[in-house]
């Protein structure tokens, strides 16, 4: 049984982030009693879907011991090219085909990353920095650089599909789109892969020690290649959802978000050295970032201070454990 001792719990990043979220919500409710409502909750859920899926993807790479900064470019590439393709070939394509195409394109782009990391053995940061430029440059040069607001009807249809909608007693409108279910599916699938398959355990093992993983006969290359393809596929999904929900295919969107996403994952306790990362932590990190981005004003901080707040949260969330580790190291020697 996992020993969830109090000390263990107190030093975990998840706990720290959860405490900050609760404190934030308390403060927000205190200054605006309407804050704690179904409407706010559903709004935040909507806002978390895309960044949440991307964060799960980024977490997977961090666990395997790498880092990926190209996933936003993959997402926007897959979304835009799928939209263009659909409009050109078969505008009435059902939404699930559209999604499948986007996911497929994403996976292929991820495979390109995988090729350079696994076969050419280049450092992951450099590869994905390069492919970030390549994917985005290719998209804008050869596929298009115009915003498309006349989306295929099925994509718009998807954004209108709601799990639940209604009006609260206070009279404000709320709605939970099906896109939220996509995030849930991604989380469950990733949970299954990471914890219930040998592949997932191998990914943890590779992140823990690449050399040991080779020695005991883990298929290191296969697992790493899978990680980059999976990340690409998730990015493709996040991209198409982003397009559908925003009712526009904007080839300039998403790129630039990659560092915030990685920040959310790291806030949730994943480590850059690999081998560590939990879905709970990642989702908490995403929630905190989304909360700060959307509701800072409620706790009385002007929204212009949003960057400062997120920056300080990152420094606090990573600085505290780093400082503790440094002190512990000095103590033990």
């Amino acid at each position: 049984m996992n020993r969830l001792s109090l000390k263990n719990l107190a030093t975990r990043n998840e706990t720290l982030v959860a405490v900050v979220i609760v404190a934030f919500c308390l403060l927000a409710t205190f200054s605006d009693p309407l804050f704690l409502s179904v409407t706010t909750l559903t709004d935040l859920m909507r806002a978390s879907v895309v960044i949440g899926i991307l964060a799960v993807a980024a977490m997977m790479v961090l666990i395997s011991g790498g880092i990926d900064v190209s996933f936003t470019a993959i997402a926007v590439f897959a979304m835009y090219s799928t939209t263009v393709l659909t409009l050109a070939v078969m505008p009435d394509m059902p939404w699930y085909f559209i999604f499948a195409i986007s996911i497929g394109i994403g996976a292929c782009l991820g495979a390109i990353n995988g090729f350079f990391v696994v076969i050419c053995r280049l450092p992951t940061l450099i590869v994905t920095l390069g492919t970030l430029s390549v994917f985005r440059g290719f998209l804008l040069t050869f596929i298009g650089s115009q915003r498309i607001s006349a989306l295929p009807p099925e994509m718009r249809g998807f954004s209108r599909m709601m799990i639940a909608r209604g009006t609260t007693e206070a009279g404000s409108f709320y709605a939970i789109p099906w896109a939220v279910a996509a995030l849930a599916i991604v989380v469950l699938l990733t949970l299954f892969i990471l914890h219930k398959t040998m592949l997932g355990r191998s990914i943890f093992a590779i992140g823990g020690s690449l050399e040991s993983a080779r020695r005991i006969g883990i298929n290191v290359r296969g697992a790493q290649f899978f990680v980059y393809c999976y990340v690409g596929a998730l990015a493709g999904l996040a991209g198409i959802i982003h397009g559908a929900m925003g009712r526009m295919a904007d080839p300039f969107s998403l790129v630039g978000l990659e560092l915030s996403v990685i920040a959310a994952v790291v806030l949730g306790g994943a480590r850059l050295i690999g081998g560590y990362g939990t879905l709970t932590g990642t989702l908490l990190g995403v929630s905190l970032i989304v909360l700060v981005e959307n509701s800072l004003i409620v706790v009385g901080i002007p929204s212009t201070w949003q960057f400062v707040t997120i920056g300080l949260l990152i420094l606090l969330g990573t600085g505290l454990p780093a400082w503790q580790a440094k002190r512990a190291a000095a103590k033990s020697a």
Binding site: A263, L272, W305, Q306, F307, V308, G311, I314
Partner: peptide, 25 residues
Amino acid sequence: LGLPPILATLGSGLVFTGIAVAMTG
């Protein structure tokens, strides 16, 4: 404080940008 440089400067970069945003709106 022993922060990994990539995270330290990612966070501080946001803080610096944020201060500039806050000063200019």
